Amino acid sequence: MQVVFYISTYFVGLLAGIMNTLAGGGSMLTLPMLMFLGLDANIANATNRIAIFFQNLVAVTSFEKKGVKAFRISLPLGTVAAAGAILGSFIALDLDKNLLQKVIGITLLIMTYFVIRKPKLKKSNSSTNSILRVLVFFGLGIYGGFIQAGIGFLMIAAITFFIGTNLVRTNAIKVGIILIYTTTSLVVFLSKGMVNVPVGLLLALGNMSGAYLAVRFAIKKGEKFLRIVLIVVVIINAVKAFML
C-alpha cells in the first residue's frame, strides 16, 4: 500500500504541476487527493504549499532560462499578494478542520463554475487606478494564502486585465507572483506545525517535474496550445467538481 501511496502522490503532483503552470486548477486535484489519502483538511491545505513553492520555483527558473523574462513584473505584484497571503493563511489556521473541509469542497465547485463562465478580458487602459491593482492582487493573495485552489485562473484573468500580455508571458508572470506569496504562506503554516513535510516533498517532486515539462511545452507550442490546454483543464475540473 505504501508503494501505491508514493506512486499516486507523485503522479498526481506531476499532473498538477503541468496544469498549474500552463493554466491552473492543479490544487483542485491535489487537495482532494491528500484528504483521500488520510490527511485532515487543514494539514492537506498546508502541506500542498510545499509542492506549490517548488513547482513555481522550477517554473520561474525555466521561463527565465528560456528567455521569457517576467520576474521583474512579478516582483511588485507578488509582494502585494504576499502581504495578503499572510492574512489568508491565518484565516485558514483559525478555521475548524471540519468546516475547512466543507469550505474546500464548496470552493472547488464555485471555482469550476467561474472558470467555465470566465468572461474574456481586455487589457486595462492607462486610466486604470493603481490602487485597484493593489487591492486586486492583495485580495488574490488572501485567497491564495487561504486555500490556493483555482488561483491560477484568477491570476490569469487579473494579469490579462491589468497588463495585457499573451498567454505565454502571462503564465510566466503568474508563476512568479505565486512563488513569492507562497513563500510567506508556507512560512506561516510551517511555524504552526501544520505541514506534513515528507508527503509535501514527495508531492513537490511530482509538481516540479510537471512544471519543467509544462514550460517546455508552453514555449515550444505557443499561445494556441495554451488555449487548448485551458479548455481541457476547465472540462477536467468541472467533471471532478461534480463528482465530489
Rank of each mutant, 00 (worst) to 15 (best):
M194C: 06
T112Y: 04
F90S: 03
I178P: 01
G210M: 09
L14R: 01
F153P: 03
L203I: 08
T9H: 03
T30G: 03
K122N: 14
G38K: 10
I178T: 07
I228F: 05
I177C: 12
T47S: 14
M28E: 02
V168A: 05
L93I: 15
L205R: 05
I43L: 09
L167G: 02
F153A: 12
L37A: 14
V188S: 04
T128S: 14
K97W: 04
V12Q: 02
G139N: 06
N45R: 07
L93V: 10
G38W: 10
R169D: 01
K221G: 00
S27G: 14
Q55M: 10
A16T: 06
T170C: 11
A238S: 13
A16E: 01
S62A: 13
G164P: 06
L226D: 00
F114C: 09
A83N: 06
G24R: 03
V175N: 02
G88Q: 09
A241H: 02
V3T: 15
K102L: 12
L230S: 06
E223N: 14
L203F: 10
I231D: 06
S127Q: 10
R216N: 15
A218N: 02
V215L: 11
V58R: 01
A16L: 06
L75Q: 04
V68F: 06
N125V: 06
R49M: 05
T21H: 01
V215Y: 07
G144L: 10
F71S: 08
G145S: 12
G38Q: 13
L37K: 11
K65F: 12
K122D: 14
K69G: 08
T128D: 11
I86F: 14
T47C: 12
K102R: 13
L186I: 11
F162I: 10
L99K: 15
K174F: 08
M194K: 13
N20T: 05
F54N: 00
F63Q: 01
K240P: 01
A158D: 07
N45Q: 05
M1L: 13
F153H: 07
N45T: 06
K118L: 09
I228D: 02
G38H: 08
G193I: 07
M35G: 08
I73H: 03
I178G: 00
N42M: 08
I147D: 03
S8A: 14
K65C: 07
L202F: 12
I142F: 07
I104E: 00
P198W: 09
M28H: 00
F162E: 04
I159T: 04
I235A: 15
S27N: 14
V232P: 01
A218S: 15
M243W: 09
V199W: 00
K102V: 11
Y212I: 04
I18N: 02
R72F: 13
L167Y: 01
I177P: 01
A85T: 07
A23P: 02
T9W: 05
L213I: 14
